[in-house]
Design a protein around this nucleic acid. Structure first.
Lengths: 362, 362
DNA sequence: CTGTTAGCGCATTCAG
DNA sequence: CTGAATGCGCTAACAG
């Protein structure tokens, strides 16, 4: 019977799972044939396939993933590294923009699973030595077939050059690190342009911008979008209308007061993220200035907080799950037709209308 | 030289990485000795170790992880499954409690990395067929040495029995699924007791509770804590003081109005999560009732939103990173001394004092 | 202390 | 269409 204790070549072996050889013996063919049959090769006779699959099911056979990987030379695994730290001492999770890691993860996970790939996950703290060695180790050990780098906005990752030498696909998410590495990101600039255009259509001309920190690429792009949209509209940015925050609510709060103290205060403020917009809303509320009747407020991110408090924020939403899915597909595609080379994808965000913007007061 | 093109047994092979055999040949020992030397075995002569490591470095040798795994029978991998869906149509990410996935991930990732384990990650949507087969597949394929299940609060996972037959360690996070599976969770009940005790110490006696949905284990436990603390204090829970929300802000908003409409309204309200507390705060603010001067508000989670708006919420914080770390260690430990068997860990949350609670008004 | 010898379980030629 | 042989790279027993 199939339950008979086989001789156990290694002592530790307790329960032995059936192998190709077991099936082969029972069916009366060779293990090679079983392998072919189970993998749907057209070379095997239908009748043989039938008998093989039947016995395989009976024995509750499962291929040994690791043996398969060794034999094929593919690890069937893609690694996701989340690069954090180095800026905010607390470690990784950027309070404002990165709540929605989850959605990116989801997009990656689902896409990879659909293609029978495993997803390996590791958080790297750039604070302790860049972490490039951790990535390299996985690659050199051949534990992974592709690398996804989820870059936090401001993180300083210095080993870009080395990455390109890894001989496996690398895709950066959220930022283009190098022309030699694939990348997927949101079009922050266009998102900002859309936001400002929306305010323009509402009749605003005195539009201020609370930007994010100078070392943030996202903040830079959004600011560039703001400037471009204003210029397109033939509007000067008055002195003092462009101020710089640090993503935190508090800075939105402070900077808004600064803006309203201007000789000619703005009628609309485009904030580079939702948190700062909420801080601004609070300041306005304390000053007794009505949002959106007297001042319109625009956020960015469509983060959870944008739905909290009154009025709820009009903001710019990023298709994050899609972002993850595209990144994963990029890795997968690379394995097919590497010749096509590196690709850089930029996807468009969309405006979410809520209650914090209105026509300019007369 | 070591750059000479070796005969390539399989055509696809392009760049060949050095193997143990290459080192062995160059040093003039057997590959077994090289293996032992590189793994720090005391059986090898110091001089040999020196020469081996030197050549290994020279050739830029890296062990092939997959070959090692096949040989040792350990996959060096732990799998994390996030079980979601099935309740909230939107998929997985529970709006209220699960923002902080990230912190749990971080705890797991770091702990596993410290022990040279890889972390595999997969999101499962229980809506499409429980997902047990996805877990089983990884295990049966021997692609993983241990399973971590991150259970969303209300998710209905029905294949518990099968899990126990997997012959590898399984630890559930956030809930105890079965006495046969390890578990790590927050002591929600004690957290609730602490919260209510805090209000009691402030002199409140008319303390109401906005609970979470009935199908939520977390909500049940917190509610039980509320009831126990009240009873300990010798206080009756007046009719209408215990109401049930659905985690969302809106329900907090609605239920608070209901509470204040009571003949004898509460002076303090303990909400089962921060979002409902914020809804309650909004309702109070609209009614012109001051928080915390007239009514105290207590949240739960210490989620990001608890720091937004005025007054900031006093709430109960969960040590989530620690939760992840413990879960990971549990898996690792299991491999050492399985005999000790399954463990169930419950860790204590802590109170975070902010501005939404004050002494009872006279 | 070191070398020899077997596997690990599967995929893949290449004959038949 | 099927089987025998071989290799993937490493580890583990055992013999020297």
């Amino acid at each position: 019977m199939n339950l008979e204790a086989k001789k156990m070549p290694r002592a530790k072996r307790v329960t032995r799972r059936p192998t190709l050889a077991d099936i082969a013996k029972e069916v009366g063919v060779s293990s090679a044939t079983v392998s072919l049959a189970l993998n749907g090769s057209p070379l095997v006779a239908d009748e043989t396939v039938r008998r093989v699959t039947e016995v395989a099911r009976k024995l509750n056979y499962r291929p040994h993933a690791i043996a398969r990987r060794l034999s094929t030379g593919r690890s069937e695994t893609v690694s996701l590294f989340v690069l954090g730290g180095g800026v905010y001492g607390n470690g990784l999770f950027y309070p404002s923009s990165w709540i929605f890691y989850s959605l990116i993860f989801k997009g990656i996970s689902i896409t990879l699973a659909q293609h029978k790939y495993y997803l390996q996950f590791q958080i790297l703290n750039l604070a302790d030595g860049d972490g490039y060695d951790k990535i390299a180790r996985q690659v050199m050990e051949r534990a992974t077939d592709g690398v996804l780098l989820l870059l936090q906005d401001e993180c300083k990752f210095c080993s870009v050059r080395e990455l390109a030498t890894l001989e496996i696909p690398v895709v950066t998410i959220n930022r283009k690190l190098s022309p030699n590495l694939g990348s997927v990101q949101i079009d922050n600039k266009q998102g900002a342009i859309d936001a400002v255009d929306y305010l323009l259509r509402l009749g605003h001309t005195r539009i201020a911008h609370i930007s994010g920190p100078a070392n943030s690429y996202n903040a830079q792009d959004r600011q560039a979008g703001y400037l471009e949209a204003m210029q397109q509209a033939g509007l000067q940015v008055p002195d003092g209308y462009l101020v710089q925050g640090d993503w935190q609510m508090e800075s939105g709060y402070d900077l808004l007061q600064q803006l309203m103290a201007l000789p000619v205060p703005p009628t609309a403020v485009f904030c580079s993220n939702d948190h700062m917009a909420i801080g601004a809303r609070e300041a306005l509320s304390e000053m007794g200035v009505s949002v959106p009747d007297e001042v319109s407020l625009m956020g960015f991110d469509d983060s959870e907080v944008s739905r909290i408090g009154v009025p709820r924020l009009t903001t710019v939403k990023q298709p994050l799950e899609n972002l993850g899915a595209i990144a994963a597909r990029e890795i997968l595609a690379w394995k097919m037709d590497k010749p096509n080379g590196v690709r850089h994808t930029v996807i468009l965000p969309s405006l979410v209308e809520r209650d914090s913007c209105a026509r300019v007061p007369i």
